[in-house]
């Protein structure tokens, strides 16, 4: 009798759980799962975005076309360069900044706010601000000339292949550093003070405290930040789009998302564009899966 009552209570709880979850499930089904499934379906067809003719089934040919396309591999290379070039400094410096913020007692909130502020701006606004800075007559050249004691040197922020890639990395770094710093700050804040106090009593210096206590206990946050950064970098679009629209050469900036946009919207080849987006989705999915796998083995509990 008692068991029956307990079971019914559990069922009740489960029912309420479902009631609360169903709206978000419906939302995600309509706006996330359906588009993904539909994109996968569309990738097997050739369909001109403007045409009223029915799409033509082509099997895997959109995928084989992409694997043989020089432009596609260039966009994969550009995406990889941007991702690696952005995510490593983002993870490292956001951790350093978080440690710095947590180590000071005054102006902590001010620094948090100051670092986080660019994350509130839209990517388009951020790119437009930096376009003005990287203009040949802009602040970037003036600053570099003052710093290196040169006069009138154009560092070609928007034209040289290396500098152009660096420029987009700088924009992204500036925009997202605060966001990931805040994640690390909350990660550090969750470490019990008793552990750091015990280490200090045992004679650990600040360096040892960081490497032996803080860093190992921050592993789940570090993993979360690195995977989020990587996924964010793989999806980069607006900076590259605005830079190329403003006259910067396309070749060094043609990341996968920009290629998807051009293929669908400028070339009307929606089937090929969806095939590209499915490939990008698979890469991101693999990273997410990896994060889940690794984070499960790296779980930290504070006893």
């Amino acid at each position: 009798m008692r068991r029956k009552r307990g079971f019914s209570m559990e069922r009740k709880k489960a029912l309420w759980g479902w009631i609360f979850v169903i709206p978000s499930l419906l939302f995600f089904s309509a706006f996330s799962f359906y588009p993904i499934i539909n994109a996968f379906y569309e990738s097997f067809f050739n369909r001109n975005l403007l045409s009223l003719r029915p799409p033509r089934f082509v099997g895997w040919s959109n995928y084989t076309y992409l694997f043989n396309s020089r432009d596609f591999w260039l966009s994969v290379q550009n995406t990889a360069i941007f991702t690696v070039g952005t995510f490593i400094p983002l993870v490292v410096f956001s951790l350093i900044l978080a440690v710095f913020i947590m180590s000071i007692s005054r102006f902590r909130r001010f620094f948090q706010l100051a670092f986080y502020a660019p994350a509130v701006l839209s990517s388009v606004v951020a790119a437009l601000i930096w376009l003005l800075i990287f203009d040949p007559r802009g602040l970037a050249n003036q600053g570099m000339n003052a710093l290196l004691g040169t006069t009138g040197v154009n560092y070609n922020w928007l034209s040289d292949t290396f500098m152009l890639r660096l420029s987009t990395i700088v924009v992204y770094f500036w925009k997202y550093i605060g966001y990931f710093t805040v994640l690390f700050v909350s990660g550090i804040g969750a470490i019990p003070h008793t552990l750091t106090e015990a280490a200090l009593i045992d004679g650990a210096n600040r360096w040892q405290l960081f490497w032996r206590i803080t860093f190992p206990l921050l592993k789940p946050t570090t993993l979360l930040v690195s995977v989020m950064t990587m996924i964010q970098c793989l999806k980069t679009f607006s900076t590259q789009y605005l830079f190329t629209s403003a006259g910067a050469p396309t070749r060094p900036l043609n990341v996968i998302t920009l290629s998807i946009y051009n293929t669908a919207i400028k070339d009307y080849r929606i089937g090929r564009a969806t095939a590209m987006s499915i490939l990008l989705f698979l890469v991101m999915f693999a990273f997410t899966w990896l994060q889940l796998r690794v984070s499960r083995t790296e779980e930290v509990t504070f006893m």
Partner: peptide
């Protein structure tokens, strides 16, 4: 029909010689 696309390719060619 693909004029837009061709213009993008010309843009890439001119940028390559001018800027790269």
């Amino acid at each position: 029909e693909n004029g837009y696309q061709f213009e993008r390719f010309i843009k890439e060619a001119v940028e390559s010689v001018m800027l790269e």
